[in-house]
Design a protein around this nucleic acid. Structure first.
Length: 312
DNA sequence: ATATGGCCCTGGTTGC
DNA sequence: TGCAACCAGGGCCATA
């Protein structure tokens, strides 16, 4: 299931491939399930817009989109107004490299966003248009470069949303970003919480981006039992957890994410972090540190893997 | 306010 | 061997 490292990998890949490209036509499946915005509204909103940039917010992929081009024949790598925009504090101002090398940087203000959540089984792929569409393809955006951006999701737990920024604020993850949250803010998140630390890590309104794999892996590296009450952890334990979480997320991003289930990046390539898992889906196998068999229990309704000796 | 549990989905695994 | 029941699980919503 795509979590922070997988979503980061996909967002970077999509950014590199389609930044500056323009959406010519958008097609959506007729299922009601993956659409937060009605498909017809998404298609109408997306068509004609330039992709200014792509980034990750928690587990969401956000495509920053420019205004609809005044002249449809305009160059595909048109980057919007030249010169700097005065509002530097606006989150929706994205820096976009100039297509011609050596000319410097332009800044374009996003006027709309396409927000993609991959759910459990979602994929976001950049392909040539003649590649046959996989089963459960729910969105196909044809780009002026000739390529296609496709959203595929067999289980339909993913969500697609179009947002016009003239009428609403830009997308922001509800919880804090695990890779940049300050140590004291991290401690404060869990103070007096009655739920288990595992459930707290999975709660997206506290931290955005942590899912089942990296919750289990970070708790193992920090030596903490998943079922322990979040409010009962000491400051020292919480700091160890924060550092373990950062370490495991960064390491996973370097390896292109964990390919469990059917995760692939924007090019359809698998990640390698699953080879480095210490506990996740290693039930019964010897702990990499002490050789005690890894246990699987249910915490907060989720399959939870831990080492009974290393985690107290 | 905070915490818990059911629901949505389909493909892969398990069990008879 | 074949088919059906079962299970995974992120986020959302209703409920305690």
């Amino acid at each position: 299931m795509p979590e922070l490292p997988e979503v980061e990998t996909i967002a970077r890949g999509v950014h590199e491939r389609i930044r500056g490209d323009r959406i010519v036509q958008a097609w959506f499946s007729s299922y009601p399930q993956p659409f937060k915005t009605p498909p017809t509204q998404q298609a109408a909103g997306l068509e004609g817009r330039t992709v200014l940039g792509v980034h990750r917010e928690g587990k969401h992929i956000v495509l920053e989109l420019g205004g609809v081009a005044a002249h449809p024949s305009q160059n595909a790598r048109w980057m919007g107004h030249a010169g700097s925009h005065p509002n530097h504090k606006n989150k929706n101002v994205v820096r976009v490299g100039h297509p011609d090398p050596g000319v410097g940087e332009n800044e374009s203000k996003a006027e709309a966003q396409w927000i993609v959540h991959l759910g459990m089984t979602g994929r976001l792929l950049v392909t040539a248009p003649d590649v046959p569409a996989a089963a459960h393809t729910h969105a196909r955006l044809s780009l002026v470069s000739g390529r296609e951006l496709r959203f595929v999701d067999p289980r339909r737990f993913g969500r697609l949303e179009f947002r016009d920024l003239s009428g609403s604020a830009g997308f922001e993850a509800s919880g804090a970003e695990p890779l940049t949250i300050a140590a004291d803010k991290f401690v404060a998140l869990f103070r007096r919480r009655k739920l288990s630390i595992k459930a707290a890590l999975l709660n997206q309104t506290l931290l955005a981006g942590v899912g089942n794999i990296y919750a289990d892996e970070s708790l193992f590296r920090a030596g903490i039992r998943p079922g322990k009450g979040a409010g009962r952890l000491t400051r020292v334990e919480l700091e160890r957890l924060r550092l373990s979480l950062c370490e495991v997320l960064r390491h996973a991003i370097r390896l292109g994410g964990s390919s469990v289930s059917d995760y692939v990046d924007a090019d359809g390539v698998r990640g390698f972090f699953q080879l480095e898992h210490c506990v996740y889906q290693r039930t019964g196998l010897p702990c990499r540190r002490c050789e005690t068999p890894i246990r699987r229990i249910l915490v907060a309704g989720r399959g939870t893997h831990y080492c009974p000796k290393c985690q107290r």
